[in-house]
Nucleic acid binder design. Sequence first.
DNA 1: TACTGTAAAGAACGAACGTTCTTTTGTCAA
DNA 2: TTGACAAAAGAACGTTCGTTCTTTACAGTA
Lengths: 212, 212
Amino acid sequence: MTDFPAPDFSTADASPPDFNARDAEYLAKLQDYYADWKSIPSYAKLCEVFGIASKSWVKAILTRLNTAGFIERTPDGAWIPTRQFFARPLAESSVQAGMPMPVTATQGDYFIIDEMLIDTPSKTTLIPVKGDSMIEAGIHDGDVAVVEKRNLANVGDIVVAIVDNEFTLKTLDKERGKYILRPANAAYAVIRPQGSLEIFGVLIGLIRKYRK
Amino acid sequence: MTDFPAPDFSTADASPPDFNARDAEYLAKLQDYYADWKSIPSYAKLCEVFGIASKSWVKAILTRLNTAGFIERTPDGAWIPTRQFFARPLAESSVQAGMPMPVTATQGDYFIIDEMLIDTPSKTTLIPVKGDSMIEAGIHDGDVAVVEKRNLANVGDIVVAIVDNEFTLKTLDKERGKYILRPANAAYAVIRPQGSLEIFGVLIGLIRKYRK
DNA sequence: TACTGTAAAGAACGAACGTTCTTTTGTCAA
DNA sequence: TTGACAAAAGAACGTTCGTTCTTTACAGTA
């Protein structure tokens, strides 16, 4: 998975020089507040949040946070957090020399797993996998298939097809000019649909949850 | 996966009787606005959004949306969307008689995959899997392991251990009173750590992305 | 036609808001 | 000890905000 979306902290490093260590503290306080209330309050409230007494200084801080890319404004003038706002560096304790750095799973309220798997949310569906007909492809009973709804697929794709009014997850293949559905389990038979094959969607991701 | 979190639309049905069809239209408009600007604007702006001219009527609408559970207020008085705000019913086209109903992967800006996998975001880490030492457990090279950071695990858990300054993903087992790390691939050797075994975390989920 | 309830408009007001400009405080260096 | 600068405070102001109360429009019903 070469396109693993590691958070880009270089942006923060490339911030203008007037975003300083003190601003980082203010940012942390704003992040804490937002985590609680899911909104950026008025300048007066931000005075409390930041622990200062000056609205104008609040504005100066917000301007710098804006320049540094942590917050932005709507056309209505409301401050809203950016994606970068939610990116926090890893706790130092988890970073050790010589080890691949883990990536935090979530960044505030934004989750990267979904963005990893899903480009087109409205066309994406989750379907629980039943049975072990694809077990040799590492798809187990109880896994959840992330499926992009479309009725065109390529040979080799793992597709969700509609066979006998049921969803079935198989590899799409071609045999003597006709499309077939191939399981990844020697105990299961290849499905050779008569007439046309109805494709519901294409497997784009897989999710598994281990029992706690 | 019996705990698959299907969206609860029954809540919307159980709304107070004064949340009517017209309010549903206002809700849709507010949802659209929020999708664009990620904030709920002032009453004056909401007049434009709703296509009405009365601030007091805006307030009446918001009060009903609040009672129905779609929005709520911070202690500062700011309106913020609730989880239910982002839940939209499935498109009718994807629901067909006699078939298991798929669950939409995302609901507005809230994603259910993460909530499915992650209870404690701050303790959860994503680690890309390298190699095929766990392939018989359906964990493939390139998968992403969802790992909960903790240093206690049970026998049988798949754990991320730190061996020779590297993360390694193996099943935790016990042999003659000593903990060992067992791969799920006959070609790999069991790891028998000398001294103590350092556990980084426990595998709680797995994510796979298929090439597009 | 009159009654009733809902949907919406409108006016009025004090409080809160964001902005701008000026002033103070503290720190470091020359 | 003076100068320079950053950090923060403070005042002042016109605008916008949310709230409350009153009024209008309209549809359905008796």
